[in-house]
Design a protein around this nucleic acid. Structure first.
Length: 160
DNA sequence: GCCAACGTTGGC
DNA sequence: GCCAACGTTGGC
């Protein structure tokens, strides 16, 4: 495993943008726009090309880790913050020092079976994972290598 | 639809 | 700098 490659988890509501949407996007790539939380933004600013991302469906039934994406372009200003017609418009963001960033991510793979939040909560090895913390709302979060390995192992184990 | 657990805003 | 009010996230 390459040194310096980091692991992340990013949440999306599937009725807004699903992993299938990413797989069908041009070049299977999208700008991860609309993040308006400083902690999440700061994590995105530390992302590097090649970093691996768990793609999570929130507000889904059930909520699930769906598969894997990867960072293909590091942080740059989020254009939606300057668009008055966009839901994520931020009139307070200075144009010369934009407040919000995006990264570009590309589809890598979809798991054979989605890994539900329930299933993940049942894994003692995932104790302490940010996603599983009560009240956790962070939409971009770091994943430990051990957690990454465990989730990929579960993805291999749980098939039709 | 409910509501706990946040994060942000703004009066003081 | 405090903190009440408010808005949002997201599981259930």
């Amino acid at each position: 495993m390459a040194e310096g490659r980091h692991y992340w988890l990013m949440k999306s509501e599937p009725n807004v943008f699903s992993l299938d949407d990413l797989a069908q996007a041009p070049k299977q790539t999208t700008a991860w726009d609309g993040v308006r939380n400083y902690q999440a933004r700061n994590f995105m600013r530390t992302m590097k090309t090649g970093d691996q991302v768990l793609f999570y469906h929130s507000n889904a039934q059930p909520p699930c880790v769906m598969g894997v994406a990867e960072v293909v372009k590091p942080a740059y200003p989020d254009p939606t913050q300057f668009d008055p017609h966009d839901a994520h418009y931020d009139p307070a963001s200075p144009t010369d020092q934009p407040r919000w960033d995006v990264v570009d991510i590309r589809f890598v793979r979809k798991f054979d079976v989605p890994l539900s939040l329930d299933l993940l909560r049942g894994q003692a090895s995932l104790n302490g994972m940010e996603l599983l913390r009560k009240g956790s709302r962070l939409s971009v979060q770091p994943v430990k290598p051990s957690e990454w390995n465990e989730i990929l192992r579960l993805a291999r184990t749980h098939r039709d």
